[in-house]
């Protein structure tokens, strides 16, 4: 960076062209990276654009005109907000249970020594390495064989979501916990803190960002899941299932409003978390 223009022209007269190629050589990776980011963002731009669309026909998916109607009448499409409510309820419950159980497991895996650690590791890892359709069909096979196929619905979806969120929670919290210096906990114990105090005063605050990240991840995994949910939902309709059904009939533009709102909320959460972390670091 310090070898910028003035000194370069002084030592070796170079044409603007060769300087450009040199700069390009240094930064071509960055340019490609930014292009890839653009590719990743294109659908989000489309979703935001489409949230203002005034479709000419029911199943039209081209931008026909600008309107704010979708934003003022979000719950317009029949059943959409009901599905949204179901998804949020399941998401919150699944996040609470999975984060609690997964955090306990992460502490066990990192801080405790016991027989069967390797087996536990495999059982935690496998759900992340199993295609959703296999996991979903396994659960359905269990429910059908257990004779509870008539009870498929809210609770079976919740069970499934807690199951696949658990592994991600364990891995996320474990990563945070493994990066912690265990000498901090030892120091607390040396200073006569008991285990309970050490946990709440030292370990928990230090691991908390990891737990929060795991909870956010859980909620987004749960809220977004379609394949496993679809197999185990019975008559219940979650938001992704509503979108799926709508995709066959013609997509109401309000779906894009919900997509945009979710994007903005999550972005705000991340930015707020970052600001908080900076403030803490600054103190």
């Amino acid at each position: 960076m310090s070898t910028a223009t003035p000194s370069a022209t002084a030592t070796a007269p170079r044409s603007a062209g060769s300087r450009f190629t040199r700069w390009l050589g240094d930064n071509v990776v960055l340019l490609v990276g930014l292009l890839v980011l653009l590719y990743m963002f294109t659908p989000v731009f489309v979703v935001i654009l489409m949230s203002f669309n005034d479709p000419a026909a029911r199943n039209s998916y081209s931008f026909d005109g600008f309107t704010l109607d979708n934003w003022t009448n979000i719950c317009g499409p029949l059943g959409m907000c009901e599905a949204l409510r179901v998804s949020i309820e399941i998401g919150v419950l699944a996040t609470l249970v999975a984060t609690l159980l997964g955090t306990l497991m992460a502490f066990a895996m990192v801080r405790h020594r016991f027989r069967g650690r390797a087996a536990a590791n495999i059982v935690i890892f496998l759900p992340m390495a199993t295609p959703e359709v296999v996991m979903g069909s396994s659960l359905l096979a269990l429910f059908v064989n257990g004779g509870v196929s008539g009870l498929l619905g809210f609770w079976t979806i919740l069970i499934a979501h807690i199951m696949f969120c658990l592994s991600f929670v364990v891995v996320t919290v474990k990563a945070r916990l493994a990066g912690l210096d265990p000498r901090l906990e030892q120091a607390a114990m040396d200073l006569y803190a008991n285990e309970w105090q050490t946990f709440w005063r030292i370990s928990f605050p230090l691991v908390f960002p990891g737990i929060l990240a795991a909870a956010l991840l859980s909620f987004s995994l749960s809220f977004d899941d379609f394949i496993i949910t679809n197999l185990n939902a019975g008559q219940e309709v979650t938001f992704p299932m509503f979108v799926w059904g709508a995709a066959q009939r013609g997509i109401p533009a309000q779906i894009n409003v919900v997509g945009t709102i979710m994007f903005l909320i999550a972005l705000a959460a991340v930015v707020a978390g970052d600001v908080l972390a900076r403030r803490r670091a600054g103190r």
Binding site: F41, P43, V243, G259
Partner: peptide, 27 residues
């Protein structure tokens, strides 16, 4: 950090809604 957030950010919008938007892009 900003770039990392940018990698994750699109995934805050529902999987199905994003996939549907490819119907528009490739239309």
């Amino acid at each position: 950090n900003l770039m990392l957030v940018a990698v994750i950010a699109p995934f805050f919008t529902s999987f199905l809604v994003r996939t549907l938007s490819w119907q528009y892009i490739l239309g």
